[in-house]
Design a protein around this nucleic acid. Structure first.
Lengths: 230, 230
DNA sequence: ACCTGAACACCGTTCAAGT
DNA sequence: ACCTGAACACCGTTCAAGT
């Protein structure tokens, strides 16, 4: 039996942190978090699982780095030369669209507290908040309110995508199922959900997201004009 | 060797869905998600792993049920006979305190899209939104903005708790570490985070959370008085 | 310095067999 | 109807051994 030749290093196919991360992103984009295993990854990189550990600390480091790369690229592509409130909307929408297209990002972000990917988003938001000229002691609360709302939406989106994948459903039929479940709830115990059930399938996630961002921005504006309310 | 007698069923120790869930909550409260395994659970219930599957579909069903029980109890204990905006604050704070004490709740919520525990929170918020008398087509956006913000904070809290546990740190020293990392960031690339770093250790999570809720409520109020802005 | 791949210590889940 | 516990098909991670 011929020995398998795999001298990647000498043939210019050398493993590198960047290649590991790029390939991880391919796997994640393709099939979500479930697809990213050290075995699948090493197979695609034509190497052994152990080799990856030379370039990466552990799985959470890997997920974090993959997430960070995608977020940095996305944030860089957002034009920000506009009024601060518009820039905040633009950044938020870019995050929404990214997490909508690649749900794994939302759950990766949820796992990385205070880490670089999160800090990137926070910082861009915070810069605009500064331009908005809110009182200094509320800058942090404002930026992290926006961030936490974005992370919350991204997390829910990721959870929905994963359930839909597990149950092998299209996104639309998945929403239909939830609507159906909600309409079977006790209208006395769950009046709101029961009432919202029929609206669920037709509603526009993206518009709702933007409305949420607007609530926060408007709340900030009100604080500026009426600081005694706070 | 004496045969181990374990006729739980006949001795009044019969397994039941409720007992499985209560015991799961004990494990989760004790050591977070890492502690909840079918092996640990079956050991504590003095049975085999397979027995649990007679009462429960799978792990996500289990986590969901545990989460739902805690949330239902917490929500029931919140007094809501007050002005709607105050009731919203009370509910939100109750959620915050619960997720602060038991971080696993935040991550369990993040995994359960559209499921009962989430619907409970949404519904209580939505009921108060209705009393607030916002335009009908923004009720949903308002309730889900509040919900997503709460879920975002809970998710971050859970992530922080887990990192702190993994690195065996107290909550305070953990914040100190993050502050330290942020102060080493490039102040040109991350001006906001760099500037916030020194404030991080002393800041009040709970107050920031409440401020975020207030931004949204104030944004809603502004919408009411000035609907053309939207 | 970097890679290999078998081995380790876990998981959730299944299922034939028991009572 | 309910429980038992070995077995299955996976994981992430380690590490002696290679180049």
């Amino acid at each position: 039996m011929k020995k398998k030749i795999r001298e990647n290093q000498k043939r210019g196919n050398a493993l590198s942190r960047d290649r590991v991360i790029e390939t991880s992103i391919e796997l994640l984009n393709g099939g979500g978090e479930t697809e990213l295993t050290f075995r699948a990854l090493s197979q695609r990189l034509d190497t052994g699982p152990g080799a990856i550990y030379w370039h990466i600390d552990n799985k959470s480091d890997l997920l974090n780095a993959a997430c960070d790369l995608v977020i940095a690229r996305t944030l860089n592509a957002v034009p920000k030369a506009m009024a601060p409130d518009m820039a905040i909307r633009a950044v938020a929408l870019a995050m929404f669209d990214m997490m909508d297209e690649y749900p794994w990002i939302g759950s990766a972000l949820a796992q990385a507290g205070g880490k670089l990917p999160m800090v990137r988003i926070l910082d861009v938001l915070g810069q605009q908040i500064q331009v908005l000229d809110v009182p200094e002691q509320t800058e942090w609360a404002a930026a992290s309110a926006l961030l936490n709302f974005i992370l919350g939406v991204g997390g829910q989106n990721a959870a929905n995508a994963q359930t839909a994948q597990r149950e092998n459903l299209e996104r639309d039929t998945f929403l239909g199922e939830i609507s159906n479940e909600w309409s079977k709830l006790d209208p006395v115990e769950f009046p709101f959900a029961y009432r919202m059930a029929p609206r669920l399938p037709a509603h526009d996630d993206r518009a709702d997201f933007l409305a949420g961002i607007d609530f926060i921005i408007q709340g900030l504006a009100k604080l500026k004009s009426n600081p005694d309310d706070f």
